[in-house]
Structure formats: C-alpha cells, structure tokens
C-alpha cells in the first residue's frame, strides 16, 4: 500500500523506447566563450533568446568548473573562488544529472568545450564527446575555408553529427 503517491519524488521522463531520440541539444564553445555551434534535436522549452541561452550555458560551465576545482579535496594549491585559472588547470567535471536530463561536458586543453544534453538514463558519454571532438577536427578545423573562432556553418559536420548522435544510447 502506498500512502504518499508515487515512490519517486522527482519523476523522470519515461525511458525512450526507440533508440535515436536520446539527445536534446549540443553546444560547442571555444576558449573565448564564442558559441561555435548549437544543435538542437529535441528541446520543447525555449525561455531565452539564443544568445542569452548560450551565455547562460557558458557561465554555468565556467562557474561549475571553478567550484569543482575549489572543492577538490586532493589538491592543496587552489586559488580563491572565481580567480582565473589556466585553461584545463585543476580538476573538472564530466557530467551532471538532474531528474529530467543529463549534461555531459568535455574541455580540450585548447579550450574547446563540447556540451551534450541527453536523456538522464544515458551512460558515460566521455568517449562520445571525444568522438565528436574528432569530428570537429576532421570537418571544421581541417576545412581551409573555416576561419577559426567564427560560428561553424558546415552541412557536412551537421549531417555527421546528427547521424552520430542518433546512435548514442
């Protein structure tokens, strides 16, 4: 007998039955906070305009990184919260999960940040993010017509991303 309604306090969305619909959206930022790419596959709610949304996401990551480095119990050398760090210095987080989504994060030492928001039941995506980084190298960095630091407009890259993201379980 249940007295207090469902056993789950914070209900998660149902597990998708068919694969291929797990990813919600993806961001790629460079070291200067420029949003190089934003892809959206499955996002119901838009509350902010695109620019504010990107800024908010970058700010979240920046603060969270600073916070995780500050909390690091294994490292004696840490500055005050908010003090600038060398890119990649200190520890960093890989992902966080809420009841409704999971955010996976990867940063290369060159400051490229790849963020993938997926269904909360998805597994460890670190290898997937690395794979996406490789796609970025092949389709974007090696494209001689792409000017570094500008938003990516590459159909080829988008297509291969869409294809790959569909395989993420």
């Amino acid at each position: 007998m249940q007295f207090f309604g469902g056993s789950e306090i914070s209900p998660s969305p149902p597990v998708p039955t068919a694969s291929g619909n797990n990813a919600h959206m993806m961001y790629v930022f460079n070291r200067n906070g420029v949003c190089l790419l934003y892809r959206e596959w499955n996002r119901l709610l838009h509350t902010l305009n695109a620019q504010q949304d990107h800024k908010l996401m970058f700010g979240l990551l920046f603060s969270l990184k600073s916070l995780t480095a500050k909390m690091d119990p294994t490292n004696a050398e840490k500055g005050n919260l908010g003090v600038p760090q060398l890119s990649g210095q200190g520890c960093s987080f890989h992902s966080f999960r809420t009841n409704t989504y999971k955010l996976s994060f990867m940063e290369s030492p060159s400051g490229i940040k790849i963020i993938l928001v997926t269904h909360p039941r998805t597994g460890d995506l670190r290898e997937s993010l690395k794979y996406i980084y490789n796609l970025y190298v092949e389709y974007v960095v090696k494209n001689p017509l792409y000017a570094p630091g500008t938003p990516i407009r590459s159909e080829l890259f988008n297509t291969s991303l869409d294809q790959y993201v569909r395989t993420i379980a």
């Binding site: 290369s108 030492p109 060159s110 490229i112 690395k130 970025y136 190298v137 960095v141 570094p148």
Partner: peptide, 15 residues
C-alpha cells in the same frame, strides 16, 4: 592554431 586540435584529438595527451 588549427593543428593543436588535431594533435589533442588524436594523441589523447592530457594536460
């Protein structure tokens, strides 16, 4: 400035 990303992506070198 481009090659560094290829290097990092393929070599798996950490910081």
């Amino acid at each position: 400035i481009r090659l560094i990303d290829e290097f990092l992506a393929k070599s798996n070198v950490t910081r």
